[in-house]
Write a protein that binds this DNA or RNA. Sequence first.
DNA 1: CAGAATCCCATTCGATACTG
DNA 2: CAGTATCGAATGGGATTCTG
Lengths: 225, 225
Amino acid sequence: MKLPKETKSGHGKWYGDACGTAFAMEVIGERWALLIVRELMFGALRFSDLRAGMPGISAKVLTERLAGLEAAGVLIRRKLAPPAAGQVYELTAWGYAAETAIMEMGRWAAMSCAHDPTLPLSPASLMMSFRTMFDPALADGLEADLGFVVAGQAFRATVRTDSLKIRRTPAEGAQAILHAPAAPLVAAHVYGDVPLAELAAVRVEGDATVLARFVASVKLPPKIG
Amino acid sequence: MKLPKETKSGHGKWYGDACGTAFAMEVIGERWALLIVRELMFGALRFSDLRAGMPGISAKVLTERLAGLEAAGVLIRRKLAPPAAGQVYELTAWGYAAETAIMEMGRWAAMSCAHDPTLPLSPASLMMSFRTMFDPALADGLEADLGFVVAGQAFRATVRTDSLKIRRTPAEGAQAILHAPAAPLVAAHVYGDVPLAELAAVRVEGDATVLARFVASVKLPPKIG
DNA sequence: CAGAATCCCATTCGATACTG
DNA sequence: CAGTATCGAATGGGATTCTG
């Protein structure tokens, strides 16, 4: 007697367990699946943009995962309006609701000594780390409208006294805009305390003081493992 | 050219990504790994106890996962004091720190319509769901010391005005003790609103009123997917 | 460029049998 | 009870090719 195969792909096939954690792992536990959700967390992306954020994933696997996540209700595929050809992948409301879980996993991982923060990092990962590590107590009342242009991807961060919102939106008009060719450089400054002066490729446009206050409000947790 | 294999087992071999979420998935994203952590969350267990909580896992895979999780620093194997033979597996401080992430994943999964809460459930899963779904606002100031004996496993829950602690400890002396032969029966009462009177196999010992107040303070989130 | 289809090998899994 | 050893089957995933 074999266990039921059920949907044959995507979910419901592994654990047969009512535990929510088990169900979550069936949906987002396959290799790459959670990273796809991470990449989409700040807004819809096209196939090739997704690949760019996940070096190492193959077209086949990305196609399979996108189909699985769509079947599970995590994301939908949406056709772009006529002028722009092609389509984008966008999280559903439930997909966006995974953000808390993703952040808690990231926070947990950051507590391990084995976690290597010097590896490559996608722009979306960097932004997600800001959301995770933002501490209103450190922000000390900061309210700001910041832009980040990292590896060609633009994000807009809105800092309020007790919240931080980030979305994929052009940075024009922000109080301060940080331009960097790659995310690890920004991480070296924010988390590794490397002064901006030592990072020739990173440029700040606008109010550097506001940006510095933001950087001071983002901090990694202590290591416990 | 191939990607680096690195540790050959356990972690660091998949994504090569500084993103904490990616690292977390390398540690606990393998099949069954997170469920092992879940089972251990309330205290150390032996090999066979772990198998009992995860119907479907084979001895081989359990052995492999335990070795991987030990190598990653999530758990340690500890020899029992002489009177009791054998050894147990116990989470490290970092392993216990995964609880928040596990709960957030469970909360997220519970928001999906596709989540089937009628599947089998281990006692540890049930307790974890209590921790996840406990709402101090619904508890309305309840302070209590409760026992749960489910499928032969005993847990002790301490309810405070704004917290709920649970650990694997004999239930003797609690204000109320709920005895049930299997976890799904308890879930049917707590989350499915099936009256205790209809569950002949479930028995309450002690102050049923206190238990009822606890049950009223545990609630599933609304469905959004 | 987006993504489906095919091929093929490495890994992984589950079942069973076996051992201290 | 607590694993280990072995083996056949299933799956996974990279490379390549093909299509709109």
